[in-house]
């Protein structure tokens, strides 16, 4: 022994777990915003207004045709620079920097929203028309109808797609490591380069991602049971 301890997996477990926590935080934030974008997108697509439908159509068609990594790099640079110059133009000159976390979340949410739009659109279309007509005949306003009838009836149809998108999102968070954002995979890469134990640290990162997706599967299984309670099993 020459006094230098070889760095190993044990020294990096703390940073890896911190990275995993950041990954979960980005994913949850992007998911929530993605769901809101998806609801807006689905409403726009189903609204009778041509301009709104056109915008929503362009949004989903483009996002789904361009590779996620390319989109993330493009939006990361375009988004941060665009927002920064907009902020400067509005008078918040200097000192305003968009943090990596905000940028990562907004980019992932923007991509997620396009896929979510399609899930929600399909789920809303699948609601029997007569139920909506019944709501109308009770004199419900559009907003009340959406909250009390459309949302709860759509959820069982949408949940399978939503759980799929969550799993895709958790795995997609690894892509923001490419633009230098420090999440789980970025930390694993640093650990691998610093120790030379490449296979070990990629396996460790993989195991943490796997744990996240497996736990998510269980959670979504129970959520599915919950939203389907009282429904006849098909």
């Amino acid at each position: 022994m020459n006094g230098f301890e070889q760095e190993g997996l044990r020294d990096w477990i703390g940073p890896l777990l911190d990275g995993a926590l950041v990954t979960v935080q980005i994913a949850v934030a992007a998911y929530v915003i993605g769901i809101l974008l998806g609801l807006l997108g689905a409403m726009a697509k189903l609204s009778g207004i041509n301009a709104l439908r056109g915008i929503a159509w362009g949004y989903t068609a483009l996002v789904r045709a361009i590779p996620e990594l390319l989109l993330i790099i493009l939006l990361y640079y375009a988004g941060t620079q665009g927002l920064n110059s907009a902020l400067i133009a509005m008078g918040f000159a200097g000192g305003v920097e968009i943090g990596g976390f905000t940028a990562a979340v907004s980019v992932l949410a923007f991509v997620q929203g396009a896929y979510m739009t399609e899930v929600f659109r399909g789920a809303i279309v699948a609601i029997p028309k007569s139920l909506l007509e019944a709501a109308d005949s009770y004199g419900m306003s559009r907003g009340l109808r959406f909250r009390r009838i459309v949302l709860p009836l759509m959820l069982p149809n949408a949940l399978a797609g939503m759980s799929n998108l969550w799993l895709i999102l958790v795995k997609e968070t690894a892509l923001v490591s490419v633009v230098g954002f420090e999440e789980l995979f970025f930390t694993a890469q640093q650990a691998a380069a610093s120790t030379g134990l490449y296979a070990t640290f990629y396996l460790a990162a993989g195991a943490l991602f796997l744990a996240m997706t497996l736990i998510s599967n269980v959670v979504f299984h129970f959520a599915e049971r919950h939203v389907r309670r009282g429904m006849v099993r098909g």
């Binding site: 892509l175 296979a199 993989g206 991602f209």
Partner: peptide, 23 residues
Amino acid sequence: TTVIRGTPLLVQLFFFYDGVGRL
């Protein structure tokens, strides 16, 4: 199939190239 579908493709790519390749 569970492991491959449950982990990011980017991680798998680095595992094969940097990990297995170097080994």
